[in-house]
Design a protein around this nucleic acid. Structure first.
Lengths: 225, 225
DNA sequence: GCAAAAGTGTTTGGGATACACCCATGC
DNA sequence: GCATGGGTGTATCCCAAACACTTTTGC
Protein backbone atom coordinates (compact mmCIF):
# COMPACT_ATOMS: atom_id res chain seq x y z
CA UNK A 1 0.00 0.00 0.00
CA UNK A 2 2.98 2.25 0.43
CA UNK A 3 5.04 1.22 -2.54
CA UNK A 4 3.84 1.91 -6.05
CA UNK A 5 6.64 -0.24 -7.40
CA UNK A 6 6.60 -3.78 -6.00
CA UNK A 7 8.10 -3.86 -2.54
CA UNK A 8 11.55 -5.46 -2.47
CA UNK A 9 13.16 -6.01 0.91
CA UNK A 10 16.92 -5.97 1.43
CA UNK A 11 18.78 -9.21 1.77
CA UNK A 12 18.65 -10.45 5.34
CA UNK A 13 21.65 -12.19 6.83
CA UNK A 14 22.71 -13.45 10.24
CA UNK A 15 26.18 -13.53 11.77
CA UNK A 16 27.57 -14.79 15.04
CA UNK A 17 30.32 -13.66 17.38
CA UNK A 18 31.07 -16.79 19.41
CA UNK A 19 33.45 -16.50 22.33
CA UNK A 20 35.38 -19.25 24.04
CA UNK A 21 38.26 -19.36 26.47
CA UNK A 22 41.28 -21.15 25.05
CA UNK A 23 44.23 -21.41 27.44
CA UNK A 24 43.55 -18.16 29.27
CA UNK A 25 42.75 -16.22 26.12
CA UNK A 26 39.34 -15.02 25.03
CA UNK A 27 38.92 -16.25 21.47
CA UNK A 28 36.40 -15.72 18.67
CA UNK A 29 35.33 -18.24 16.08
CA UNK A 30 36.12 -17.14 12.51
CA UNK A 31 35.84 -18.69 9.09
CA UNK A 32 38.04 -18.21 6.09
CA UNK A 33 36.00 -17.02 3.16
CA UNK A 34 36.18 -19.42 0.22
CA UNK A 35 34.35 -17.15 -2.21
CA UNK A 36 34.21 -13.52 -3.27
CA UNK A 37 33.84 -10.94 -1.87
CA UNK A 38 36.78 -10.89 0.52
CA UNK A 39 37.88 -14.31 -0.71
CA UNK A 40 40.61 -15.63 1.55
CA UNK A 41 39.91 -13.15 4.33
CA UNK A 42 38.66 -14.17 7.75
CA UNK A 43 35.12 -13.34 8.73
CA UNK A 44 32.44 -14.07 11.28
CA UNK A 45 30.40 -17.13 10.44
CA UNK A 46 27.13 -16.05 8.88
CA UNK A 47 24.78 -16.43 5.99
CA UNK A 48 21.38 -15.83 4.54
CA UNK A 49 18.07 -15.70 6.35
CA UNK A 50 15.13 -16.76 4.22
CA UNK A 51 11.48 -15.95 4.79
CA UNK A 52 9.91 -18.36 7.23
CA UNK A 53 13.02 -18.76 9.34
CA UNK A 54 13.59 -16.87 12.54
CA UNK A 55 17.01 -15.32 12.77
CA UNK A 56 18.03 -17.90 15.36
CA UNK A 57 16.90 -20.76 13.18
CA UNK A 58 18.81 -19.32 10.24
CA UNK A 59 21.87 -18.93 12.45
CA UNK A 60 21.66 -22.54 13.58
CA UNK A 61 21.53 -23.77 10.01
CA UNK A 62 24.33 -21.53 8.84
CA UNK A 63 26.64 -22.58 11.66
CA UNK A 64 25.96 -26.24 11.13
CA UNK A 65 26.62 -25.95 7.41
CA UNK A 66 29.68 -23.73 7.46
CA UNK A 67 31.55 -24.65 10.64
CA UNK A 68 29.87 -27.82 11.85
CA UNK A 69 28.89 -26.08 15.08
CA UNK A 70 25.66 -27.26 16.71
CA UNK A 71 24.09 -24.14 18.13
CA UNK A 72 21.88 -25.83 20.71
CA UNK A 73 24.62 -28.07 22.00
CA UNK A 74 27.83 -26.09 21.69
CA UNK A 75 26.67 -22.61 22.51
CA UNK A 76 25.88 -22.21 26.20
CA UNK A 77 24.69 -18.62 25.98
CA UNK A 78 23.32 -16.72 23.00
CA UNK A 79 21.82 -13.28 22.66
CA UNK A 80 21.01 -10.89 19.89
CA UNK A 81 23.69 -8.22 19.64
CA UNK A 82 22.66 -5.62 17.09
CA UNK A 83 21.39 -5.27 13.54
CA UNK A 84 23.85 -3.76 11.11
CA UNK A 85 22.38 -2.17 8.05
CA UNK A 86 24.64 0.34 6.40
CA UNK A 87 24.15 0.16 2.67
CA UNK A 88 27.80 -0.19 1.75
CA UNK A 89 28.75 -2.97 4.13
CA UNK A 90 28.37 -5.68 1.53
CA UNK A 91 29.79 -4.89 -1.92
CA UNK A 92 27.24 -7.23 -3.53
CA UNK A 93 24.28 -5.12 -2.50
CA UNK A 94 22.25 -3.96 0.43
CA UNK A 95 22.32 -6.58 3.18
CA UNK A 96 20.92 -6.15 6.66
CA UNK A 97 22.58 -8.41 9.17
CA UNK A 98 21.16 -9.46 12.50
CA UNK A 99 24.18 -10.31 14.61
CA UNK A 100 24.15 -12.62 17.59
CA UNK A 101 26.81 -13.06 20.21
CA UNK A 102 27.32 -16.11 22.33
CA UNK A 103 29.65 -18.14 24.44
CA UNK A 104 30.73 -21.74 24.57
CA UNK A 105 33.15 -24.01 26.39
CA UNK A 106 34.25 -26.43 23.76
CA UNK A 107 32.61 -25.45 20.51
CA UNK A 108 32.87 -28.09 17.81
CA UNK A 109 33.97 -26.68 14.49
CA UNK A 110 35.87 -27.78 11.45
CA UNK A 111 33.28 -30.17 10.07
CA UNK A 112 31.63 -27.60 7.84
CA UNK A 113 32.06 -26.24 4.37
CA UNK A 114 34.46 -23.48 5.43
CA UNK A 115 37.81 -23.46 7.17
CA UNK A 116 37.29 -22.25 10.73
CA UNK A 117 39.52 -21.29 13.62
CA UNK A 118 39.52 -19.51 16.94
CA UNK A 119 41.49 -16.29 17.18
CA UNK A 120 42.24 -14.27 20.32
CA UNK A 121 40.13 -11.12 20.46
CA UNK A 122 43.29 -9.18 21.16
CA UNK A 123 45.08 -10.56 18.13
CA UNK A 124 42.67 -10.80 15.23
CA UNK A 125 43.64 -11.27 11.59
CA UNK A 126 42.44 -8.91 8.88
CA UNK A 127 38.69 -9.25 8.74
CA UNK A 128 36.13 -8.96 5.95
CA UNK A 129 33.25 -6.48 5.91
CA UNK A 130 32.72 -4.48 9.12
CA UNK A 131 33.39 -7.56 11.21
CA UNK A 132 36.16 -6.02 13.26
CA UNK A 133 33.79 -3.35 14.56
CA UNK A 134 31.19 -5.99 15.27
CA UNK A 135 33.61 -8.03 17.36
CA UNK A 136 34.62 -4.92 19.31
CA UNK A 137 30.99 -4.22 20.04
CA UNK A 138 30.35 -7.83 21.06
CA UNK A 139 33.26 -7.76 23.42
CA UNK A 140 31.91 -4.64 25.13
CA UNK A 141 28.57 -6.37 25.48
CA UNK A 142 30.26 -9.39 27.02
CA UNK A 143 32.09 -7.19 29.53
CA UNK A 144 28.80 -5.55 30.50
CA UNK A 145 27.11 -8.92 30.86
CA UNK A 146 29.90 -10.28 33.02
CA UNK A 147 29.46 -7.28 35.28
CA UNK A 148 25.71 -7.65 35.60
CA UNK A 149 24.87 -11.32 35.20
CA UNK A 150 26.16 -14.81 35.88
CA UNK A 151 27.03 -15.26 32.19
CA UNK A 152 30.50 -16.48 33.17
CA UNK A 153 28.94 -19.90 33.60
CA UNK A 154 28.73 -20.13 29.83
CA UNK A 155 32.47 -19.69 29.34
CA UNK A 156 33.64 -22.07 32.05
CA UNK A 157 33.38 -25.82 32.45
CA UNK A 158 30.78 -26.95 34.99
CA UNK A 159 33.49 -27.07 37.67
CA UNK A 160 36.23 -24.51 37.78
CA UNK A 161 38.64 -22.84 40.16
CA UNK A 162 38.43 -19.25 41.28
CA UNK A 163 41.56 -18.59 39.29
CA UNK A 164 39.85 -19.82 36.13
CA UNK A 165 36.96 -17.53 36.88
CA UNK A 166 39.23 -14.58 37.44
CA UNK A 167 40.99 -15.31 34.17
CA UNK A 168 37.67 -15.03 32.34
CA UNK A 169 37.00 -11.63 33.84
CA UNK A 170 40.49 -10.41 33.19
CA UNK A 171 40.42 -11.54 29.57
CA UNK A 172 37.05 -9.97 28.88
CA UNK A 173 37.67 -6.72 30.73
CA UNK A 174 41.19 -6.47 29.40
CA UNK A 175 42.75 -5.66 32.76
CA UNK A 176 44.18 -7.40 35.78
CA UNK A 177 42.21 -7.71 38.97
CA UNK A 178 43.29 -8.08 42.58
CA UNK A 179 42.95 -11.68 43.66
CA UNK A 180 41.69 -11.05 47.17
CA UNK A 181 39.16 -8.42 46.17
CA UNK A 182 37.93 -10.44 43.23
CA UNK A 183 37.26 -13.50 45.37
CA UNK A 184 35.63 -11.56 48.15
CA UNK A 185 33.34 -9.71 45.80
CA UNK A 186 32.43 -12.65 43.63
CA UNK A 187 31.69 -14.94 46.54
CA UNK A 188 29.47 -12.26 48.04
CA UNK A 189 27.31 -12.37 44.90
CA UNK A 190 26.19 -15.83 45.94
CA UNK A 191 26.27 -17.20 42.38
CA UNK A 192 28.63 -20.12 42.93
CA UNK A 193 29.20 -22.79 45.54
CA UNK A 194 32.17 -24.89 46.56
CA UNK A 195 32.26 -28.51 45.54
CA UNK A 196 34.27 -31.03 47.50
CA UNK A 197 36.57 -31.68 44.58
CA UNK A 198 39.93 -30.14 43.90
CA UNK A 199 41.92 -29.39 40.82
CA UNK A 200 45.56 -30.32 40.83
CA UNK A 201 47.94 -29.23 38.15
CA UNK A 202 51.61 -28.44 38.43
CA UNK A 203 53.89 -28.26 41.42
CA UNK A 204 51.74 -26.28 43.76
CA UNK A 205 48.80 -26.44 46.10
CA UNK A 206 45.62 -27.86 44.54
CA UNK A 207 42.66 -25.51 44.08
CA UNK A 208 39.10 -25.99 45.20
CA UNK A 209 36.58 -26.49 42.43
CA UNK A 210 33.43 -24.39 42.37
CA UNK A 211 30.22 -24.61 40.37
CA UNK A 212 27.57 -22.09 39.39
CA UNK A 213 24.30 -22.48 41.25
CA UNK A 214 22.46 -21.79 38.01
CA UNK A 215 23.42 -22.59 34.44
CA UNK A 216 20.96 -20.12 32.97
CA UNK A 217 21.25 -16.39 32.72
CA UNK A 218 20.41 -14.42 35.85
CA UNK A 219 20.68 -10.70 36.30
CA UNK A 220 22.34 -9.32 39.40
CA UNK A 221 21.04 -6.52 41.49
CA UNK A 222 24.45 -5.29 42.48
CA UNK A 223 26.76 -4.96 39.56
CA UNK A 224 30.33 -6.07 39.47
CA UNK A 225 33.24 -3.68 38.77
CA UNK B 1 24.74 -20.76 -3.50
CA UNK B 2 22.92 -22.05 -0.45
CA UNK B 3 19.38 -22.03 -1.73
CA UNK B 4 18.35 -24.29 -4.54
CA UNK B 5 15.05 -22.45 -4.76
CA UNK B 6 15.46 -18.70 -5.33
CA UNK B 7 16.29 -16.92 -2.09
CA UNK B 8 13.36 -14.94 -0.70
CA UNK B 9 14.02 -12.77 2.33
CA UNK B 10 11.35 -12.01 4.92
CA UNK B 11 9.58 -8.70 4.87
CA UNK B 12 11.62 -6.09 6.70
CA UNK B 13 9.86 -3.46 8.76
CA UNK B 14 10.85 -0.73 11.18
CA UNK B 15 8.99 0.52 14.24
CA UNK B 16 9.63 3.26 16.76
CA UNK B 17 9.01 3.66 20.48
CA UNK B 18 9.14 7.42 20.96
CA UNK B 19 9.03 8.76 24.50
CA UNK B 20 8.09 12.23 25.62
CA UNK B 21 7.25 13.81 28.95
CA UNK B 22 3.74 15.25 29.02
CA UNK B 23 2.79 16.94 32.29
CA UNK B 24 4.91 14.72 34.52
CA UNK B 25 3.97 11.53 32.72
CA UNK B 26 6.21 9.49 30.46
CA UNK B 27 4.23 9.00 27.26
CA UNK B 28 4.66 6.94 24.08
CA UNK B 29 3.58 7.93 20.60
CA UNK B 30 1.02 5.55 19.10
CA UNK B 31 -1.02 5.42 15.93
CA UNK B 32 -4.46 4.04 15.39
CA UNK B 33 -4.41 1.42 12.68
CA UNK B 34 -6.66 2.33 9.76
CA UNK B 35 -6.29 -1.01 7.98
CA UNK B 36 -6.24 -4.71 8.73
CA UNK B 37 -4.75 -6.48 10.55
CA UNK B 38 -5.66 -5.05 13.95
CA UNK B 39 -7.77 -2.37 12.30
CA UNK B 40 -8.81 0.18 14.89
CA UNK B 41 -6.24 -0.95 17.46
CA UNK B 42 -3.38 1.23 18.62
CA UNK B 43 0.15 0.38 17.54
CA UNK B 44 3.66 1.71 17.38
CA UNK B 45 4.31 3.78 14.29
CA UNK B 46 6.15 1.67 11.75
CA UNK B 47 6.23 0.43 8.20
CA UNK B 48 8.18 -1.24 5.45
CA UNK B 49 11.87 -1.07 4.81
CA UNK B 50 12.79 -1.47 1.15
CA UNK B 51 16.15 -2.50 -0.28
CA UNK B 52 18.48 0.47 -0.55
CA UNK B 53 17.19 2.19 2.56
CA UNK B 54 18.91 1.95 5.89
CA UNK B 55 16.57 1.18 8.73
CA UNK B 56 16.90 4.74 10.00
CA UNK B 57 16.07 6.18 6.62
CA UNK B 58 13.05 3.94 6.37
CA UNK B 59 11.99 4.98 9.85
CA UNK B 60 12.27 8.66 8.96
CA UNK B 61 10.09 8.20 5.91
CA UNK B 62 7.50 6.13 7.73
CA UNK B 63 7.18 8.62 10.58
CA UNK B 64 6.85 11.54 8.24
CA UNK B 65 4.18 9.80 6.22
CA UNK B 66 2.12 8.29 9.02
CA UNK B 67 2.39 10.75 11.89
CA UNK B 68 3.95 13.85 10.38
CA UNK B 69 6.90 13.53 12.74
CA UNK B 70 10.23 14.79 11.44
CA UNK B 71 12.80 12.39 12.82
CA UNK B 72 15.81 14.67 12.55
CA UNK B 73 14.07 17.62 14.09
CA UNK B 74 11.65 16.21 16.63
CA UNK B 75 13.58 13.27 18.00
CA UNK B 76 16.45 14.37 20.21
CA UNK B 77 17.80 10.91 20.90
CA UNK B 78 17.41 7.74 18.85
CA UNK B 79 18.92 4.30 19.21
CA UNK B 80 18.30 0.86 17.85
CA UNK B 81 16.42 -1.22 20.41
CA UNK B 82 16.11 -4.79 19.17
CA UNK B 83 15.09 -6.81 16.15
CA UNK B 84 11.91 -8.83 16.59
CA UNK B 85 11.52 -11.76 14.29
CA UNK B 86 9.12 -14.36 15.55
CA UNK B 87 7.29 -15.86 12.63
CA UNK B 88 3.81 -15.39 14.02
CA UNK B 89 4.03 -11.76 15.03
CA UNK B 90 2.37 -10.50 11.86
CA UNK B 91 -0.66 -12.49 10.67
CA UNK B 92 0.05 -11.46 7.08
CA UNK B 93 3.33 -13.33 6.92
CA UNK B 94 6.84 -13.43 8.25
CA UNK B 95 8.01 -9.92 9.04
CA UNK B 96 11.24 -9.03 10.79
CA UNK B 97 11.07 -5.70 12.52
CA UNK B 98 14.01 -3.55 13.50
CA UNK B 99 12.73 -1.45 16.37
CA UNK B 100 14.19 1.89 17.41
CA UNK B 101 13.56 3.79 20.58
CA UNK B 102 13.94 7.50 21.03
CA UNK B 103 13.04 10.57 22.98
CA UNK B 104 11.71 14.00 22.17
CA UNK B 105 10.53 17.15 23.88
CA UNK B 106 7.74 18.35 21.70
CA UNK B 107 7.26 15.84 18.93
CA UNK B 108 5.07 17.08 16.12
CA UNK B 109 2.46 14.57 15.11
CA UNK B 110 -1.02 14.52 13.66
CA UNK B 111 -0.13 15.70 10.18
CA UNK B 112 0.21 12.22 8.77
CA UNK B 113 -1.98 9.58 7.24
CA UNK B 114 -2.84 7.93 10.58
CA UNK B 115 -4.45 9.16 13.76
CA UNK B 116 -1.76 9.52 16.39
CA UNK B 117 -1.66 10.22 20.11
CA UNK B 118 0.58 10.05 23.14
CA UNK B 119 -0.35 7.57 25.84
CA UNK B 120 1.24 7.23 29.28
CA UNK B 121 3.47 4.16 29.47
CA UNK B 122 1.67 3.21 32.65
CA UNK B 123 -1.75 3.42 31.07
CA UNK B 124 -1.61 2.02 27.56
CA UNK B 125 -4.61 1.02 25.44
CA UNK B 126 -4.89 -2.42 23.88
CA UNK B 127 -2.07 -2.73 21.41
CA UNK B 128 -1.65 -4.56 18.11
CA UNK B 129 1.00 -7.23 17.43
CA UNK B 130 3.62 -7.71 20.16
CA UNK B 131 3.86 -3.98 20.68
CA UNK B 132 3.12 -4.06 24.38
CA UNK B 133 6.17 -6.23 25.01
CA UNK B 134 8.24 -3.97 22.83
CA UNK B 135 7.25 -0.90 24.82
CA UNK B 136 8.07 -2.68 28.08
CA UNK B 137 11.49 -3.53 26.71
CA UNK B 138 12.05 0.03 25.49
CA UNK B 139 11.16 1.40 28.87
CA UNK B 140 13.71 -0.84 30.56
CA UNK B 141 16.29 0.35 28.08
CA UNK B 142 15.42 3.95 28.84
CA UNK B 143 15.80 3.35 32.57
CA UNK B 144 19.22 1.81 31.99
CA UNK B 145 20.26 4.71 29.79
CA UNK B 146 19.13 7.26 32.34
CA UNK B 147 21.27 5.49 34.90
CA UNK B 148 24.37 5.40 32.74
CA UNK B 149 24.25 8.37 30.39
CA UNK B 150 23.10 11.97 30.13
CA UNK B 151 20.15 10.92 27.95
CA UNK B 152 17.80 12.93 30.17
CA UNK B 153 18.76 15.94 28.05
CA UNK B 154 16.65 14.49 25.27
CA UNK B 155 13.47 14.45 27.34
CA UNK B 156 13.80 17.91 28.87
CA UNK B 157 13.66 21.39 27.38
CA UNK B 158 17.05 23.11 27.09
CA UNK B 159 16.46 24.79 30.45
CA UNK B 160 14.78 22.95 33.27
CA UNK B 161 14.55 22.83 37.03
CA UNK B 162 15.93 20.09 39.21
CA UNK B 163 12.35 19.11 39.99
CA UNK B 164 11.66 18.62 36.29
CA UNK B 165 14.75 16.45 36.07
CA UNK B 166 13.73 14.40 39.06
CA UNK B 167 10.29 13.91 37.56
CA UNK B 168 11.86 12.37 34.46
CA UNK B 169 13.81 9.89 36.54
CA UNK B 170 10.85 9.03 38.69
CA UNK B 171 8.58 8.49 35.69
CA UNK B 172 11.08 6.29 33.89
CA UNK B 173 12.17 4.28 36.92
CA UNK B 174 8.64 4.03 38.21
CA UNK B 175 9.51 4.97 41.77
CA UNK B 176 9.93 8.04 43.92
CA UNK B 177 13.32 9.38 44.79
CA UNK B 178 14.57 11.40 47.73
CA UNK B 179 14.96 15.03 46.74
CA UNK B 180 18.14 15.76 48.66
CA UNK B 181 19.93 12.61 47.61
CA UNK B 182 18.83 13.00 44.00
CA UNK B 183 20.16 16.55 43.77
CA UNK B 184 23.41 15.76 45.53
CA UNK B 185 24.11 12.77 43.33
CA UNK B 186 23.07 14.33 40.05
CA UNK B 187 25.03 17.51 40.63
CA UNK B 188 28.10 15.45 41.47
CA UNK B 189 27.92 13.87 38.01
CA UNK B 190 28.90 17.22 36.54
CA UNK B 191 26.51 16.93 33.60
CA UNK B 192 24.53 20.12 34.13
CA UNK B 193 25.21 23.71 35.11
CA UNK B 194 23.15 26.46 36.66
CA UNK B 195 21.91 29.25 34.47
CA UNK B 196 21.10 32.64 35.93
CA UNK B 197 17.45 32.31 35.05
CA UNK B 198 14.63 31.13 37.23
CA UNK B 199 11.34 29.44 36.65
CA UNK B 200 8.33 30.80 38.45
CA UNK B 201 5.03 29.08 38.47
CA UNK B 202 2.40 29.05 41.20
CA UNK B 203 2.38 30.52 44.66
CA UNK B 204 5.78 29.39 45.83
CA UNK B 205 9.44 30.05 45.63
CA UNK B 206 10.84 30.18 42.06
CA UNK B 207 13.31 27.49 41.00
CA UNK B 208 16.71 27.88 39.41
CA UNK B 209 16.95 26.75 35.81
CA UNK B 210 19.74 24.39 34.78
CA UNK B 211 21.05 23.25 31.42
CA UNK B 212 22.96 20.19 30.25
CA UNK B 213 26.57 20.85 29.41
CA UNK B 214 26.21 18.57 26.41
CA UNK B 215 23.22 17.88 24.20
CA UNK B 216 24.66 14.70 22.79
CA UNK B 217 24.86 11.32 24.39
CA UNK B 218 27.68 10.78 26.86
CA UNK B 219 28.30 7.70 28.92
CA UNK B 220 29.04 8.04 32.61
CA UNK B 221 31.75 6.23 34.46
CA UNK B 222 29.82 6.04 37.68
CA UNK B 223 26.31 4.87 37.20
CA UNK B 224 23.26 6.34 38.80
CA UNK B 225 20.91 4.37 41.05
C1' DG C 1 -0.38 34.36 57.49
C1' DC C 2 -0.74 30.40 54.96
C1' DA C 3 -0.19 27.18 51.32
C1' DA C 4 3.08 25.29 48.16
C1' DA C 5 7.21 23.94 46.15
C1' DA C 6 12.40 25.19 46.43
C1' DG C 7 16.33 24.48 48.70
C1' DT C 8 19.72 22.63 52.01
C1' DG C 9 23.47 18.88 55.74
C1' DT C 10 24.57 15.30 58.62
C1' DT C 11 24.91 10.67 60.10
C1' DT C 12 25.52 5.94 59.21
C1' DG C 13 26.51 1.59 56.95
C1' DG C 14 28.42 -1.06 53.33
C1' DG C 15 31.00 -1.91 49.40
C1' DA C 16 35.38 -0.69 46.82
C1' DT C 17 40.19 -0.39 47.01
C1' DA C 18 44.80 -1.06 48.42
C1' DC C 19 47.96 -4.03 50.17
C1' DA C 20 51.56 -8.85 51.86
C1' DC C 21 52.17 -13.04 53.65
C1' DC C 22 51.55 -18.17 54.66
C1' DC C 23 50.01 -22.81 52.58
C1' DA C 24 50.17 -27.12 49.98
C1' DT C 25 52.20 -29.41 46.48
C1' DG C 26 55.78 -31.59 42.87
C1' DC C 27 60.17 -32.06 41.88
C1' DG D 1 64.34 -26.78 50.00
C1' DC D 2 62.58 -24.27 46.47
C1' DA D 3 59.53 -22.83 42.98
C1' DT D 4 54.71 -22.31 41.93
C1' DG D 5 50.16 -20.90 42.21
C1' DG D 6 46.34 -21.30 46.12
C1' DG D 7 44.43 -19.10 49.72
C1' DT D 8 43.47 -15.46 53.25
C1' DG D 9 42.32 -10.26 56.45
C1' DT D 10 42.47 -5.43 57.56
C1' DA D 11 42.33 -0.46 57.23
C1' DT D 12 40.60 3.31 54.63
C1' DC D 13 37.66 5.91 51.77
C1' DC D 14 33.81 7.11 49.40
C1' DC D 15 29.21 6.61 48.06
C1' DA D 16 24.36 5.45 49.15
C1' DA D 17 20.59 5.86 52.06
C1' DA D 18 17.87 7.75 55.60
C1' DC D 19 15.99 11.66 57.32
C1' DA D 20 13.32 17.36 58.55
C1' DC D 21 13.36 21.93 58.49
C1' DT D 22 13.88 26.76 56.54
C1' DT D 23 13.15 29.87 52.44
C1' DT D 24 10.65 32.30 49.00
C1' DT D 25 6.82 33.30 46.73
C1' DG D 26 1.47 34.36 45.43
C1' DC D 27 -2.62 35.10 47.19
Amino acid sequence: MKFTTPYTPPTLTVDAVLFQMNNNSLDVLLIRRSAAPFKGAWALPGGYNAAGQTTQQALGEVLKRKTGTILDKDVTHLEQLYTFDTIARDPRGHAVSVVYTGCGRDITHGGGSEVSAFYPVDDLPELAYDHKDIITYARERLATKLANTNVAYSLLPPKFTLSHLQTVYEAALGKELDKRNFRKKFLSLDLIRETNETWREGAHRPAKLYEFKSQSLETLQRSFE
